[in-house]
Amino acid sequence: MTTNQIRVRVAEVETVAAQIRRLKLVPIGMSGLPDFSGGAHTILSIPDGERTLRNPYSLMSSPYDTSSYEVSVLKAAESRGGSAFIHDKIREGLPITISAPVNLFPVDRRARRHILIAGGIGITPFMSIMRQLEHDDVPFELHYGMRSQERGAYWRQLRETYGHRVHIYFEDQGQTIPLKTLLDGQPLGTHVYVCGPSTMIDWVLNGARDAGWPAENVHYERFSAPPPGTSFTVELARSGKTVPVGPHQSMLEALEAAGIDAPYLCRGGACGQCETRIVSCAGAIQHNDHYLSDAEKAAGDKIMICVSRVDGSTVTLDL
């Protein structure tokens, strides 16, 4: 286990929008939870019978109140467990464990102005980020798009708290984020951040590139989950072990289920911690991460075991 575990209790469960639930987590046996910075996430480990579900969720509560943490979870359309469990089975009072916070989506503190673009559940990291920017008295604006009033979380509350700095767009009313206008003519030292569906992230990244934004002023976080595939076998070259991977299991999950600790931080193909060397591979590698470069992916000697998999019979890893 690479992340240290903190025991918490689910103190509140609230449905805040269609398919979105907010959980409030309070520490067990400690007076407070670790401090964190806006944009950080934690990994929830939820016991479900034989297996443990582990998913990353952004911390949406204030970084200045660590007596509890809050996360919001969208029920995935075809959940393999994590988000469905949170929606269907989690009750107030349940003890679970979480990892210490990790921030892969921090704000750039040099920026003079921050433009935040959220789509749907992608609002969560911005909830803590806005608290921080408000605290530090730095100018920002939020552009938050959602399917409809019913499916969007927190938009009323955000409008109340942050007033004219919050811009809301309802897709079913034909409203769209005016990306081009937003990106054009921003003062020097402006940074843009996007979190939401992959298509939206790509739209913003491409838009910013075309508008001549320097890459270091553009930031994003993808909520990627490991996509399913077909079953295959992982062979571990060093320990000689063989571990089967199911169609809806990631290699990391399969290793953990077999009692093998492999390093991870984000479980979303972003941080690089789970990078593993491939010794040999009978099949095609499906790289699903956002960490390796295209050249590294093509070389085929490394794989991010939290999200990537193999379409074939066997892969041998340097583990």
Binding site: T3, F36, L265
Partner: peptide, 11 residues
């Protein structure tokens, strides 16, 4: 560098 970027609070 990769190790440092992944450093965690409390470790």
């Amino acid at each position: 560098l990769k190790f440092l970027l992944a450093m965690q609070i409390g470790h």
